[in-house]
């Protein structure tokens, strides 16, 4: 886990150091003299060799100092501190929605395999998975915002002003992020349950006189959830990616929007900090998934 993070940090650092264009020159403009540039380079620590710069960067990073934004001159840390909760809640709500929608629907479609509702859900699933998230976002925000008027697009309320209004605003964006993930989860859970239902242990469970529901929830579901948990763990990383587009669409000031603006402004300290933050989140989530795994599948710890 730590190794992965070190690899990412080296890749990120080297990649962003190799980009043509010198931050000191950019900061001073083209009219600066060579001495001025050299002085600023020394001040920013850019004249040191690559590995020294990496070590300085990574040690201060671990200590919580993420550097200073080229664009605003503020500390990256304070810049991101306000935005992290926004993306966190967006991802959290979206994740909860995915689970709440997908698991019951997945179970029901597997239980009533090949019935009409099951077929409709299967077809809908395929279609939902083919829609780019921003397109469904546009359609849903038009439907709820401009036609039904349940939702005001662009009327974002910060979470420190009113947490309830903030959550209310986040529901629709989170739904847009969750929708494709939910479709994939339903599909996976359904096929996984149908597969488990054909196993020998299921037949044994029935022959011992268990009820259909008892076998369904006590035996099949437990085993069918294993691949789903892996998928949901990976989906959490994807929810972050989905939030990039959705934050832009609903003008939510979260991490991903900062990433986009910093990329277009070439504000590399911010970009690097965001990437490292996302990498750390993903690695942590993977660790949690491994632990959950151990809890639901005793075979793993053997």
């Amino acid at each position: 886990m730590v190794i992965t993070l070190i690899v990412v940090s080296v890749c990120v650092f080297v990649a962003f150091s190799l980009i043509p264009g010198d931050p000191a020159t950019r900061k001073l403009g083209t009219e600066a003299t060579a001495e001025q540039v050299a002085a600023l380079r020394a001040q920013m620590g850019l004249d040191a060799p690559l590995h020294v710069r990496y070590l300085t960067w990574i040690t201060s990073f671990v200590k919580g100092d993420f550097g200073i934004s080229y664009q605003t001159g503020d500390a990256v840390r304070s810049l991101l501190a306000k935005r992290i909760p926004v993306t966190f809640f967006l991802a959290l709500i979206a994740f909860c929605m995915t689970v709440v929608i997908a698991i019951p629907v997945g179970i029901l479609t597997a239980k009533y395999e090949n019935s009409w509702p099951d077929r409709i859900v299967t077809v809908l699933n395929q279609i939902i998975m083919s829609v780019p998230p921003f397109f469904s976002g546009i359609l849903l925000s038009t439907l709820f915002g401009l036609i039904l008027r349940w939702f005001t697009p662009g009327a974002y309320v910060s979470y420190d002003t009113s947490f309830r209004a903030f959550l209310g605003y986040m529901l629709l964006p989170a739904f847009c992020v969750a929708l494709p993930k939910a479709a994939m989860t339903i599909k996976l859970l359904r096929s996984s349950m149908i597969e488990e239902a054909g196993r020998d242990y299921t037949r044994t469970a029935y022959s011992r006189g268990n009820t259909i529901d008892g076998v369904m929830y006590g035996h099949i579901l437990k085993n069918a959830m294993i691949p789903v948990v892996t998928f949901l763990g990976m989906a959490l990383a994807d929810l972050l990616a989905g939030s990039i587009v959705i934050e832009q669409l609903f003008s939510i000031p979260g991490i991903s929007r900062t990433l986009i603006t910093s990329i277009s402004n070439r504000d590399y300290p911010v970009v690097m900090a965001v990437i490292m933050g996302i990498a750390a989140t993903i690695v942590t989530v993977n660790l949690i998934v491994d632990l959950v795994y151990r809890a639901i599948d005793p075979r793993v710890s053997l």
Partner: peptide, 22 residues
């Protein structure tokens, strides 16, 4: 594969975004 795993953890749209920025 270590490097690959590290990259794989990133969603592809995010990776593409980083490469575009580079």
């Amino acid at each position: 594969m270590r490097i690959n795993d590290a990259l794989f953890a990133f969603p592809s749209i995010l990776l593409a975004l980083v490469f575009v920025s580079l």
